[in-house]
Simulated scan of single mutants.
Amino acid sequence: MKKNIPMFLAGLFCGAALFGGSVAYAAGILATPTTDLDQRITLDGQEIELIGYVINGNNYFQLRDLGDQLGFGVSWDNDTRTVVITTEPTGQTENPANVATTADPYHAAAATGSRYQPKVGDQILCDDGSTYTITDVSRWDKNMFQDGPLPELPTATCDWSLMPQVELPAPEIRRYSSAGQDYLFARNIYESRRMLYTLFNAIGDNPETWKDGKPVLHPSENAKVKISLTIPTEITPQTFWPWRSSEITNLFNSCPPGTYYMEAWDVYKNGVFQRTEYNIMHRI
């Protein structure tokens, strides 16, 4: 039997919090990994190790990790954009075309919005059904003038729960051939979250959009700022790399009200990682 589950950030975590409470489905909520040794978990009397994620004070676990421990399968159906749960472990079920399993590290990470760090030999399932092999990641963390690894995601400097609730985009892998070169564009959901949280804090730091501990609304009671983590094809965004938070904060502070479209993509050429591109567009 199969069950389809919509792709939301919190929806891929176990729905039962250890300490009670309800599941939060709003995107933009920060999930902080924890390996607290005081949190013991047993399965049929045997202690097991699971990485928990703290969301609003409650602990959640990734659905795939639970499947590995409990013996059910979790995979990604690229055609229908769904997570597929089966009553057998993923490794024991037939893997239909265009389904990424734990052998595809990109989809495993992107399904929860967590960070994917490519490694030589990784094979990524593309949206066209082909498989792209990564051969060189020497430029990772060295994106043109970037001296080292990026810091952790921004933390809240204001109440993010009052911000526009934004749905994280689905994993997406685009493969192109041009002038004999083999290109891959992988949507980077983790870095999309970096852009989103940076914008959240910029909203909270600007008196035109934040006052008395809450967002400033138009006289019509409509929000002054709207956000989308996908960019319509008819829009030509501004593109920059490596990561610079000032590219977002300066654009926002120049004209705060409006709609902000943002995306982040990892770019590969002939299997070689090139850079992570950040794209943003503002419309009043």
Rank of each mutant, 00 (worst) to 15 (best):
T101G: 09
T101P: 04
T102E: 09
T102I: 12
A103I: 05
A103W: 03
Y106K: 00
Y106L: 05
Y106C: 02
H107F: 00
H107E: 01
A108N: 07
A109W: 04
A109V: 03
A110G: 02
A111K: 04
R115A: 13
Y116K: 03
Q117K: 14
P118D: 00
K119R: 13
K119H: 15
V120Y: 06
V120N: 10
V120Q: 12
G121Y: 05
D122H: 09
Q123N: 09
I124T: 00
I124N: 03
I124M: 07
I124S: 06
I124R: 00
D127S: 15
D127G: 14
D128Y: 10
G129E: 01
S130R: 05
S130Q: 08
S130D: 06
S130T: 12
T131S: 03
T133L: 06
T133M: 08
I134N: 00
I134L: 06
I134C: 01
I134H: 01
T135R: 11
T135K: 12
D136F: 02
V137E: 02
S138C: 07
R139Q: 12
W140T: 01
D141H: 08
K142Q: 15
M144S: 13
Q146T: 04
D147L: 15
G148K: 09
P149V: 09
L150P: 06
L150V: 11
E152P: 14
E152V: 06
L153A: 14
L153H: 11
L153D: 08
T155D: 09
A156I: 10
T157Q: 13
W160Y: 10
L162Q: 15
L162M: 15
M163T: 04
M163A: 07
P164C: 11
P164Y: 05
P164L: 09
Q165L: 13
V166Y: 06
V166D: 01
E167H: 15
L168C: 05
L168S: 03
P169C: 09
P171N: 12
E172F: 12
